[in-house]
Amino acid sequence: MNEFSNAFRTAAHLLVEMDPGLLEVVLLSLRVSLSAVILAAVFALPLGAFVALTPFPGRRGVVILMNAMMSLPPVVVGLVIYLLLSRTGPLGTTGLLFTPTAMIIAQCVLVFPIIAALTRQTVFDLHEEYDEYLRSVGAGTRQKIATLLWDGRARLLTAILAGFGRAIAEVGAVIIVGGNILHSTRVMTTTIALETSKGDLGMALGLGIILVLIAVAVNTAVVTIGGGANQRTV
C-alpha cells in the first residue's frame, strides 16, 4: 500500500519539477499518438462511411472483419510492422525501424479499425434516419457522406477519442517497433514498462497517474473545442 502513496508523491514531484526527461517522454507520446489517430481518422472516416452506404458483395464480411480488428493485440501488430520494417523485411530500405514514424504506423494500424468500425455504425444508424430525406433532395454519394459524417460528429469524435485512448495507452506495439530508445522512441508506456522491470514500482505508477491526467486533459480539450458543435448534435 506504501506503493500507492509513494506513486502519488512521485507523480506530484515529477509534475511540479516539470522534469525535463518526463516532458520529453510526454511530448513524444502525444505527438506519436495524436499523429497516429489523425492519420487513421483521415482514412477511416471516409472508409467507414463508404462501407455503411454502399452495398457490395462481401460487405457483411468486411463489417465483421472491421469489428473484429478492433481487438487486434498490439503485440501482434507491433511484430508484423517490425517484420515489415526490419532491414531484411520488404520495407527495410526505408530505415524506419526504431523511429517514431514506425511507432506512428503501428498505432495507426491499431486505431484504424476502431475509428472505421465506429464510423460505419454511426453513419449506418444515421443513414436509416436520413435516407429518404437525402434521396428526396437529390443528394449524391459524396454529399450524403459529407452530411452523415458532419451530423455524426459528436459520436465520431467519441470514436476518435476511443482510438486515441487505445493509442496512448498501448505498450506492446511501440516497444517492439520503437525499441524504447532513450531520447528517441521512449514514450510514457514504454517508460512505465521499463520502470516496472527495474522494480521501481512507485515511479511506474506515478507515470501511470500522469498518463491518466494527460488523457483527461486531451479529452477535456477536445470536448471543449468541439463543444459549440456538440450542442447542436442532440
Binding site: S35, V42, G95, I104, W150, S184
Partner: peptide, 30 residues
C-alpha cells in the same frame, strides 16, 4: 457556415499529419 469550418478541419487534419510524419522522418534521419 458549415463549409468553411469543414474545409478548415480537413485542412488542419492533413497539415497536422503531414507535419507529424515529416518531422519524424527528419528526426529519424541521422
Amino acid at each position: 457556415m458549415e463549409k468553411p469550418r469543414k474545409k478548415l478541419l480537413a485542412g488542419a487534419m492533413v497539415l497536422a499529419s503531414l507535419a507529424a510524419l515529416g518531422s519524424y522522418t527528419l528526426l529519424s534521419s541521422p
